[in-house]
């Protein structure tokens, strides 16, 4: 697989504390990569290092297959970013704010109107940013990250402070950019629900360490639904199910079935009842992706 971003044992130490420790980030080309972790896990620090804002204590970073340290400027020409809270100049208008960035990239002036259109801020082009709502400022930040038609877009918590409709809007925008422009997108969040719906790949970071990195499908498989049964006699129920060739996990006080068709569950229950087993409860244990994520990060924290 071709990786757009590849870090090797990326480490950042502040004093004695390791904010990021030996992280091997792999972002495949053309994919949306969700970078997940609780607040303070090291997401923003990692992203700052990817943009050359911070110098790694150890390890190296390759973007577009080039070493970031040596070819920073060449790389950054093809990268768009929005780090944490949007930065802007409140005394300037939306247009002027983008113009200060456009000048550096040297892209045509027309691009400013284009990106304002993309984030639906065309109507406030000549209004001072001072009076913008947080959502509008955030969208302006996204607009500036798109000015240079980046090949890699890095968005750090882009939906922070947005209302639900704003969140959906940004989500759709990200999907569209990925599909239509073929951009590789790194999006960080502390909310799984945000990543879940758009990302192809996920990396979970906790306490500075990468604890999971794979496709979202693999993560989903780890968090499937289970059906648990409570009955009066587990020993006998166990034997009956085995002799009927039905798969289940047994313990002293429960029977758990991996996800089945409704019909299979009905069959299992019927067999048990016909053999005079009292079935007290049939429960669906929903282990959502969210709880898998929580469990991953909680284990790491030792809570």
């Amino acid at each position: 697989m071709e990786y757009i971003v590849e870090t090797n044992k990326l480490t950042k130490r502040f004093g004695k504390e390791y904010a990021v420790e030996a992280v091997d980030l792999r972002i495949p080309k053309g994919e949306i990569y969700g970078f997940l972790g609780p607040n303070g896990a090291g997401k923003t620090t990692t992203i700052r290092m990817l943009l050359g804002l911070m110098e790694p204590t150890l390890g190296n970073i390759k973007v577009f297959g080039k070493d970031l340290k040596r070819e920073r400027i060449g790389i950054l020409k093809k990268v768009g970013s929005l780090v944490e809270n949007p930065s802007y100049y409140p005394h300037l208008t939306a247009y002027e704010n983008l113009e200060t960035i456009r000048k550096i990239y040297g892209v045509p002036k027309k691009r400013i109107a284009d990106v304002l259109e993309i984030v639906r801020l065309s109507e406030v082009t000549n209004k001072k940013v001072k009076g913008f709502s947080l959502g509008m400022k955030q969208r302006l930040g996204i607009a500036s990250s798109l000015l240079n038609k980046p090949e890699l877009l890095i968005l750090d918590e882009p939906t922070n402070g947005l209302d639900p409709s704003g969140i959906i809007e940004i989500r759709n925008l990200i999907k569209r950019l990925s599909k239509e422009e073929g951009m590789t997108i790194l999006i960080s969040s502390h909310l799984l629900s945000e990543i879940d719906q758009i990302a192809d790949h996920v990396g979970v970071i906790s306490k500075g360490k990468m604890i999971f990195q794979d496709t979202i499908d693999v993560m989903r498989r780890q968090s499937q639904k289970k059906i648990s049964l409570k009955v009066n006699d587990y020993e006998r129920a166990n034997r009956i199910l085995i002799s009927n060739g039905m798969k289940a996990d047994f313990s002293i006080d429960s029977i758990t079935l991996p996800e089945h068709h409704d019909e299979d569950i009905a069959n299992i229950v019927r067999v048990l009842v016909e053999n005079n087993i009292s079935v007290y409860r049939i429960e669906e244990e929903k282990r959502s992706l969210e709880s898998t994520f929580l469990q991953m990060t909680a284990e790491e924290r030792g809570l």
Partner: peptide
């Protein structure tokens, strides 16, 4: 400094 625009400026292709 006002909105920490440094992070935006330094992330541009400039030294």
């Amino acid at each position: 400094n006002e909105t920490n625009a440094w992070k935006q400026v330094i992330a541009l292709p400039v030294t």
